[in-house]
Amino acid sequence: MREQDYSGVLMSSRGVLTELLWAEKYRPKSLQEMVNQEDIVKRLQVFVKEKNMPHLLFAGPPGTGKTTAAHALAHDLYGEDYRLYMLELNASDERGIDVIRTKVKEFSRSKLPVGVPFKIVLLDEADNMTADAQQALRRLMEMYVDVTRFILIANYPSKIIEPIQSRCAVFRFTSLKREDVVARLKWICSHEKVVCDDKGLDAIYEVSGGDMRRAINILQASAALGEVNLSNVYKVVGLATPAEVRALLKTALFEGDFLKSRDTLRKLMVTYGLSGVDIVKQLHREIFSSEVPIPEEIRVEIADYLGEVQYRLVEGADDEIQLSALLAKLVLLGKTLRQQPPPARPSKR
């Protein structure tokens, strides 16, 4: 549970001198405030009306409103103090079987307070739970179903074991549409009295890939640079992508300097705290960038190996060793490139 210092000083602010992350500030509190996923919202509102629901599995890409919908549902069921009746866990941070056996079990089997139809256990990023933790969870879902309902949230529902899936009503959240994202961003800008133009908002949609949380983060950072326009959005995205990721490609592939690239890798992991999978994903974006002059067939070869590395990492392999192997592969692939001058940047057709 969170512990924060709410000193009198801070609380006495009139709100002018303090600011929050917009992703939190503008998060819908109740279902009716949600502006997308209309079909899902309608079905969830039925649960609220009937004060009953099955176990739920919310699946879909990041930033499409899964967590928001779960909180809004609980809010509408229990009112402002909904967190009294809900246990929230983020399985990425607490994914072991111990957490299921202790925290979750204890909460699930506790008796119902008067006037409450059931309690809710919210397991965010449940696809990061280990297989045995999922098995343990499945038992709890059966045993305490009369007093406790589970909401599981996952990017990849296939990583949730079959028996759990079959016990849940599955809700598939779809990627947000361009107009929905842009409209929401515009709305925020008008509340914040920030100047924005359509090109800038469009660009945010493009780079965020329909992930609302990321879109709002980019919006806020762009606004902090003055106004939300194309050049500020690109500036933010450029600054937020560690230059070291591209440096990895440069030193390994084009310079063939393995030791230097491994030092960069360590900096990314230790100083920036990026996980191996984060780095693999960012590299994946980089290798298809037109600004990186790699022969086309080598882009594909790198992508193939990135996929292998990510699979191994998800299986539990060591970030540093697997990514070092990737760097060794890049050094080897670059051998022929280094013997001839790098190709000129392809001109735009």
């Binding site: 992350l21 992703a23 939190e24 990041p62 967590t67 909180h71 929230e88 983020n90 399985a91 990425s92 941070d93 965010d124 990023e125 990061n128 949380r213 990321r214 983060n217 980019i218 806020q220 950072a221 933010v236 600054l239 937020a240 992508t241 560690p242 920036y272 705290g273 990026l274 996980s275 984060d278």
Partner: peptide, 15 residues
Amino acid sequence: LKCSTSTVKSDVIPY
């Protein structure tokens, strides 16, 4: 933000 720390590290802290 009601998300995991790893999401924060890769998706929020950079901004």
